[in-house]
Amino acid sequence: MRFATFLLMLVALSAAAFAQRRVMPIDDLPPAVVEHHETRWDVRPSLKYDALCALNVLSGDPYYLKFYQADYDRLAPKFTPAEKAEFVALKRIIKDQNKGIISADLALILSVEPGDSLDDMLVALDKPNDIRERLKQTPYYSAPNFTEFMQVRPHAIAAIRALKRVGFDEDWSQHIRPQIMAKAPQIEKQLVQYNIVPLQEQVLGHALPDNRIEVDLLYYSQPHGIKITGTRFLTHFEYPFDIVLHNAVHEMMHPPYDLKSPATVQAIESLRHDAFLMDKVKHHDPSYGYNEFEGFVEEDCVQALEQTITQSMGMKEDEREYWRIQDGGMHVLAIALYELMQRERFMELRESFPHFLRRMVASGKLTNERLVQLNREFYAGR
């Protein structure tokens, strides 16, 4: 997500360094160390994150009404005009002005705080300094993005108070939670067959903070899968299992590289010169997210890793059709990286992804012309 990429802004590198693509030295990395050898799964519902996802819907955003028109029609009449204005304000600031996603942005920040009730969120929001200090202990903090959070904080407080006033939590407990609880055991039974953490650690080149993956099953989260702090992610309880598994593989790998590494930042920044890629960065539906260059590149890197790992686990699917329709076909860098991973025997050689990315850029295998060619060959099946 957008918050997972902003640390690039903290690296003080001159613009001149990126004026043209140039081959940079590639350091020899030690073999990836796999610290965890098993994956533990924790599948659960969450009122907290479902409420934050419902804010997308209650803003009246047509993008979400495609999925939740009936729920909007049921819930919206309960709110006063002033309360509805708070939902709209969240959309205006987070999505319209800052190109973010209400649910993803707020869920990521508030995931540093304990508790799962509306009251727990209100208590947390009343202590923004505590949130900031906890967020600083994660890879997802930056001063500009926390400034945005402080701007929306009064609207978030008002919105959650509105949810509490109309009994959203009771409605959720009565109508939503039972549906999720009925589905959770089936999903967990399928997930335990997959040991993904060692593979994730192998490709990332470092250990994950835990081998327990928390899967928060939600109702109001469509069409997103959302990474929050720790080894946790949010997904829809009725997604087909293969999507849930893909979400689990995908979300744990944000961010897929160390953004404090100047060599990695230089490799990423060199991609700004690729016209084919930048056309997709600048001209895609902003509702999909990834509206900043850094966030777009990070998402495509993780998508390529996701597809490579799931394929290595024996999952068979039509990846060409998937990327043709995924987010309007915008993930051209993911396709190029995936093609290169297959050709370079990425999983077999156990190369860490940061090293692989730098090597592909330095060798010229990821230039603009090659991006176009790799995409063409991918769809041609070669």
Rank of each mutant, 00 (worst) to 15 (best):
Q303R: 10
T147M: 11
P144D: 14
F296E: 11
D258Y: 15
P185A: 01
V249A: 01
P154R: 10
K280Y: 03
P81D: 11
L271A: 09
E113S: 12
F146K: 05
D318G: 03
D169T: 11
A76W: 08
E319S: 09
Q307C: 02
I160Y: 12
K280I: 00
P240I: 09
C301A: 07
V57D: 04
I268C: 04
A267Q: 06
K91A: 06
L29D: 14
M1R: 06
L13K: 13
R92G: 05
E351P: 00
D27L: 04
N129F: 08
N247V: 07
Q200W: 04
Q200N: 10
V361I: 14
P77R: 04
I213H: 01
L90G: 05
H283L: 13
V123A: 10
S142T: 14
T308S: 08
L204F: 08
G60L: 03
F168L: 06
P209V: 05
T147N: 06
R134M: 13
I94V: 15
S352W: 08
V203W: 07
Y49G: 04
L29G: 05
Y194H: 11
P256I: 09
L118H: 15
D285L: 15
R165E: 13
S270L: 13
D258T: 11
F346D: 06
Y290G: 02
Q97V: 09
S363C: 02
G381W: 06
